Simulated assay, not measured.
Amino acid sequence: MTSIYTSPAGARTIEAKYGELLAGWPVPAQHQRVPTREGETFVVASGPADAPPLVLLHGSGSNALMWTPDVAAWSERFRVYAVDLIGEPGLSAPARPPLTSGAYPLWLGDVLDALGVARASVVAVSLGGWLALDFATRHPERVERLVLLTPAGVAKAKVAGVLGAVLLKPFGEWGKQKSVELLLGPEVRRQQGSAEFVRLMSQHYRYRREPVPVVDDAAMQRVTMPTLAILGARDTFIDTPRTAARLARLVPSATVRVLPEIGHLLPAQTTPVLEFLTSP
Rank of each mutant, 00 (worst) to 15 (best):
L108Y: 01
A45E: 15
T100F: 08
G47M: 11
G24V: 01
A93T: 01
A45Y: 04
A49Q: 11
L127K: 00
A118T: 05
G109C: 11
V80S: 03
S60Y: 08
L99F: 14
L108A: 00
V80Y: 04
A103M: 06
R138Q: 09
S92H: 12
P35M: 08
E38P: 08
V123G: 14
A45D: 11
L57A: 10
E40F: 02
S62M: 12
D134S: 13
A93K: 08
F78Y: 00
L112Q: 07
L65H: 09
A51L: 07
F42M: 13
S46W: 04
R37P: 01
W25C: 01
L108S: 07
E88H: 09
V125C: 15
L91D: 06
L85G: 13
P28E: 04
P26V: 11
Y81A: 15
G90M: 04
S75M: 10
A132R: 10
V125Y: 13
S60K: 14
R79S: 03
S62D: 00
D134L: 10
G59P: 07
R33Y: 14
D50G: 12
S46M: 14
S62R: 02
P52F: 05
A23G: 13
P26Y: 08
S62I: 08
V71E: 06
A132L: 09
R96E: 11
A64G: 14
T137F: 00
D50N: 13
T41M: 06
A114I: 03
A132T: 01
A23I: 04
H58L: 07
E38M: 15
D70L: 15
G61K: 05
S126F: 09
L54T: 05
